[in-house]
Simulated scan of single mutants.
Amino acid sequence: MADQKERRLLPVKLDTYKPLREVVFDAVREAIIDGVLRPGERLMESQLAEQLGVSRTPVREAIRKLELEGFVVMIPRKGAYVAGISLKDIADVFEVRAALEALATVLAAERITEEELEELERILVRKAEIIEQQEIELFIESDKKFHEILYRASRNQRLIQILTNLQDEVHRFRSVSLASPGRMRVALEEHRKVVEALADRDITRAEALAWEHIENAENSLMEAVRKKGDIS
């Protein structure tokens, strides 16, 4: 577990056309998703502004927007805190994600290109290598890319956006789930079957496999966080 010094935010880079408030929002949101800012941790405007190298105004605006998205809670007379995630929250997210990911997989079976299928195959090979190295963070990164390509293949921009947001909500606990013995290898095999169904343009099988994968991911995560005791 990283100590407080290791968990500092890095100064934001201004080599982008985004407004400063959006750059700061993205930086703080990413820090929450990646676990740099942990559930229940107080968000001090002055401290965040110093670490990010900006004034307090864009930090304040970012915190307000993060509250609207559910990543931050405001407690009267106490301030802003990183929102926790309960087992009920996870169940709700996965209930929606399973249905929408199944839809994305159905659409991908109809619309995926040969180039995208090859991208998915390459990720499967990379995942197998990562499993041998037992590098959980690299596996999570590859897993995220896998789903990004799958979502993209649906050719439905609104669906892509919703699914990406849902992924972000549980990303903070992915390392806990994948640390379970054998889970990375099982996830790889589940993805391999999905790719085979996509390549065969088998819509029915692809949909069933998508449901199975998300349900297994939920069960693994639920079991892991109960054992770890980080959420209620």
Rank of each mutant, 00 (worst) to 15 (best):
M1R: 14
Q4R: 14
R7T: 03
L10K: 10
L10Y: 05
P11W: 00
L20E: 10
V23D: 07
E30K: 09
I32Y: 06
I32V: 10
I33F: 04
D34N: 11
V36I: 13
L37M: 01
P39Q: 05
L43Q: 05
E45Q: 13
E45P: 11
Q47N: 11
L48K: 11
A49E: 15
E50K: 06
Q51F: 00
G53V: 04
S55C: 13
R60L: 15
K65Y: 03
L66A: 05
E69Q: 10
I75K: 12
P76H: 01
K78R: 06
A80V: 12
I85K: 11
D89E: 12
A91K: 13
A91M: 08
V93W: 05
F94A: 12
E95M: 00
A98I: 02
E101Y: 00
A102S: 14
A102D: 08
V106R: 04
V106W: 00
E114N: 15
E114S: 03
R122F: 08
L124Q: 02
A128W: 02
E129A: 00
L138M: 02
L138S: 15
F139I: 06
S142F: 05
N156C: 09
R158D: 15
T164D: 13
L166C: 13
Q167R: 07
V170D: 12
V170H: 03
H171D: 07
R172M: 04
S177F: 04
P181G: 08
H191W: 04
L198Y: 03
D200Y: 12
R201H: 04
I203N: 07
I203Y: 03
A206I: 03
E207W: 02
I214L: 04
A217D: 12
A217I: 03
S220P: 09
V225T: 10
V225R: 03
K228F: 05
K228G: 08
G229D: 04
I231Q: 00
